[in-house]
């Protein structure tokens, strides 16, 4: 199958998925306790206005009903909402109505993308060498230390690492790295490090097992018999073979990386999409909550698509499906 057809098919899948997510979120949120897109709640929210100024009350009610399409049937509202979201027409949030959601996204999304992207790059830079070392020194104490460390990195979630980092750099050795806020490049260091720990673990373990497996192959023994230098064998015949399939390991970690971004942003008070999402959910700001979930999911799916394309370009044996 050629590349264009493959991309088209995948984009269609992503579109269907996104429509499903938006519709489900919208319908579920509509029935959430407290009611949100709902004439009755708005009427009760306007409260005493009905007695004080019935005319103004009616006007408000009609304005909101028109704005959120509340007098239409549910399926119609859902379709309208999905269509608006797909065309990036998100409207305004409940909490911050003066700033359109799209404007809030424009400042928040690059921050989250930087954190997620930076953590994956860092994880590759650290994880690959560690995995190679563990494989070369397999069954020694170095190997077991590295394996245990990478398990630890995988097991302990980024928010726990985050609060530990805040304690470490905020209390014990304060003044070296900032533990709060966003603005300077130094602010990104700790969040990215905390975020990458899990992926470092995944990549280290993958590289180790893949390389250990690879070094058992016949062609490695042939290369050794020919008298090729050890590191040359490791690089040319071992690592390079493992690297292409590494992409299949990195892809599935994206979902978790993006969720980790949400956590880390909240721990370090970084004004990215994760903080936006947390504020939206805790303050029942439904339009913003659904939109941030939508954008973050879209980010994951597009990252996966890019990975699949890269994989097929790097490894000619891979057939696109």
């Amino acid at each position: 199958m050629n590349l264009a057809l493959f991309i088209g098919k995948r984009l269609l899948t992503i579109l269907i998925t996104v429509v499903a997510i938006l519709a489900i979120s919208f319908i579920m949120m509509r029935f959430a306790p407290g009611g949100f897109f709902n004439s009755a709640t708005i009427a009760s929210g306007l409260g005493t206005l009905a007695l004080q100024n019935p005319h103004l009350y009616q006007e408000y009610l009609q304005m909101f009903e028109k704005q959120y399409g509340l007098n239409q049937p549910l399926w119609r509202q859902t379709l309208t909402y999905v269509w608006h979201s797909l065309t990036f027409n998100f409207g305004t949030s409940f909490e911050n109505p003066s700033v359109p959601i799209i404007t809030q996204l424009k400042t928040a999304l690059p921050i989250s993308a930087l954190l997620a992207g930076g953590s994956i790059v860092l994880a590759l830079l650290i994880g690959i060498p560690l995995g190679v070392i563990a494989a070369v020194k397999r069954n020694t104490w170095i190997d077991s230390v590295l394996t245990t460390l990478s398990m630890t990195g995988q097991a302990i979630p980024s928010y726990v690492l985050g609060v530990i980092a805040v304690l470490l750099f905020g209390v014990w050795i304060s003044g070296i790295l900032p533990v709060n806020g966003w603005g300077t490049p130094a602010d990104a260091v700790l969040p990215i490090v905390c975020l990458s720990a899990g992926n470092i673990g995944v990549i280290t373990r993958y590289m180790r097992s893949s390389l250990v497996e690879g070094l058992r192959q016949e062609y490695i023994r042939t290369a050794e018999a020919k008298g090729i230098r050890y590191w040359h064998i490791i690089w040319r015949h071992g690592i390079r073979n493992s690297l292409t399939a590494l992409i299949t390991v990195v892809g599935p970690t994206f979902a978790f990386t993006v969720v980790g971004t949400v956590w880390v942003e909240n721990i370090f008070s970084i004004p990215g999409l994760g903080t936006l999402l947390a504020n939206a959910f805790t303050s029942d700001d439904i339009p913003l909550a659904i939109t941030s979930v939508y954008i973050l999911s879209l980010m994951v799916m597009l990252m996966n698509l890019i990975v699949d394309i890269t994989y097929s370009l790097l490894d000619p044996r891979v057939k696109l499906r």
Binding site: P33, A255, A289
Partner: peptide, 20 residues
């Protein structure tokens, strides 16, 4: 495949908002 690629944590958030 979908559940693997999708960050199900966000679905959890929506479910928890709806059901308490």
């Amino acid at each position: 495949d979908f559940m693997y690629a999708f960050p199900t944590y966000f679905l959890d958030l929506i479910l928890v908002t709806t059901f308490g």
